[in-house]
Amino acid sequence: MADRLTAVGFDADDTLWHNERWFRLTQDRFAGLLADYADPDHLSDRLLAAERRNIGRYGYGIKGFVLSMIETALEVTEDRVPAPVIRELIEAGQEMLAHPIELLPHARAAVERLAESHRVVLITKGDLMDQERKLAQSGLGDLFHGVEIVSEKTPEVYARIFARHGDGAARALMVGNSMRSDVVPAIRAGGWGVYVPHGLVWDIEHAEPPTDSPRYRTIADLGELPDLVAAIEAN
């Protein structure tokens, strides 16, 4: 079949396993530690601004998040943040890095089923060591035909990945919980973009859904993905 998909890309964090919830819990802890210096909303805005500034320096992931919290703490306290607060922020980051992986519903079944007929590729961004740890703990690593840990997800990156793991972006599909990183750039590369919503989304990952694209789809959870792939190939 000429239109058969040959590659299916999966995002990792908050698509295959929980991730953002641990950032939110740590951010609540951060707000409590700095309660005497800034109200939670103001602190949240300052932290988000620091994270935006620092993506180019530290990339994505827990380590950059911790450094951004420390930077924000120094800013809002005018360099007077108590040393025990800095220590607790570092410890919070270490706890996040050691947190057990919890798969989302249908994750294993979807990867297993599609791996029988397509090249399945894990495409994620973030800290290399942390992403490798999470993949190893997830128990899904042996199911993937390829693993790509990248610094940013752009149309050019997707084009290169799907050229290596399949027959190009035109015959590939990417599924994930981020419009900005998983859906929009995959479609711009010429592929299919499938949005699977997660209850918590980092503000930086927001983007408008590409509703005008014929290659945009949305599903309620990964349990619907194999049938969607079959429907796309049947048309």
Rank of each mutant, 00 (worst) to 15 (best):
H99P: 00
I90W: 12
A230I: 00
A107V: 05
T154Y: 01
I204A: 15
V196K: 02
E95M: 08
D36G: 15
L173V: 06
M179P: 10
L104S: 10
A12M: 06
I101E: 03
G64F: 14
G56D: 08
E156L: 12
P100R: 13
G9C: 05
Y37M: 04
A186Q: 05
A163V: 09
L135M: 04
A220C: 06
A207M: 01
I86K: 06
R4H: 11
R80Q: 15
L104H: 05
I86G: 08
V196Q: 03
R53G: 01
Y216Q: 03
R21V: 13
D130M: 03
S68A: 15
V8F: 12
G93Y: 00
D203M: 09
A159T: 15
I86L: 15
R164Q: 08
G61I: 09
R21H: 09
D11T: 14
D127R: 07
W22R: 11
A109C: 00
R171D: 00
A207V: 02
A107F: 05
G223E: 06
Y60I: 07
L47T: 08
T218G: 03
A207G: 01
E224W: 00
R180A: 15
A49N: 05
H206L: 14
A31K: 12
E224I: 00
I55Q: 09
L143E: 01
L34M: 15
I161Q: 07
I149P: 04
I70S: 04
A92N: 08
V147G: 10
P209V: 08
R29A: 09
L114G: 14
D221T: 10
A231Q: 14
S151I: 06
A186K: 04
T124N: 05
A110S: 13
Y37I: 05
P209D: 03
R24I: 07
D167T: 14
L47G: 08
R53D: 12
F144Q: 00
A159N: 02
G56I: 00
V76H: 05
D127E: 12
D182M: 14
L89A: 07
H99Q: 12
A107K: 02
E148S: 04
L143H: 01
E71P: 11
L103W: 02
W192I: 12
V111P: 05
G168N: 11
V229S: 03
A170T: 09
Q137T: 03
D45K: 15
S44D: 13
A189G: 11
G32I: 10
